[in-house]
């Protein structure tokens, strides 16, 4: 499996072919439409990461030492960006997720969506992903502090 940075570099490469914002957002919107990201059973208050403007639902599980993320949003652009974040972070070890430096959003010109003032739930979702990774890491190493 590719490392987190290899996936980030692949996304940056893909986005370099887009001529203008229209093409880029068309792609993100398609990503958002294509991905049935989360089971209906997880689309509840318990899994809701509250943004001021758009809602995000996030579910995480540990399978064979890897964290599997599933997420969804009521806004399609948010959902498309979630698709990218999941492609980068899901399926890696808790430690790799904790160590991850997400530089790809800046490189593909989508960093503005991760501004706290944007209030779309993405910042809280990323924080929540890291918290899940931390919890699973403790589970794996048997630490109990």
């Amino acid at each position: 499996m590719e490392s987190i940075n290899e996936i980030q570099d692949a996304i940056i490469d893909e986005f370099s072919f887009f001529g203008d914002w229209m093409e880029k957002y068309e792609y993100i919107i398609e990503l958002g439409k294509d991905l049935p990201l989360i089971d209906a059973q997880y689309k509840t208050e318990d899994y809701l990461v509250r943004g001021c403007q758009s809602k995000v639902w996030l579910h995480a599980s540990l399978e064979d030492g890897k964290v599997i993320f599933k997420a969804d949003s009521d806004a399609i652009i948010t959902k498309g960006i979630i698709g990218l974040l999941i492609r980068v972070l899901s399926g890696h070890s808790p430690q790799d997720i904790l160590d991850a430096d997400l530089y790809f959003l800046d490189k593909i010109g989508l960093k503005e969506h991760l501004s706290p003032t944007r209030a779309n739930g993405l910042v809280s979702m990323l924080k929540q992903m890291k918290l899940y990774a931390l919890a699973f890491q403790k589970q794996l190493t048997g630490k109990n502090d």
């Binding site: 914002w21 229209m22 957002y25 403007q53 806004a75 652009i77 948010t78």
Partner: peptide
């Protein structure tokens, strides 16, 4: 069929400043 946040984001790309949300 559209979310206000998505509409606002795309309008911004066209240089149009509107407010979205509650």
């Amino acid at each position: 069929g559209t979310h206000p946040y998505d509409l606002g984001t795309l309008l911004d790309k066209m240089g149009i400043a509107v407010r979205t949300g509650h």
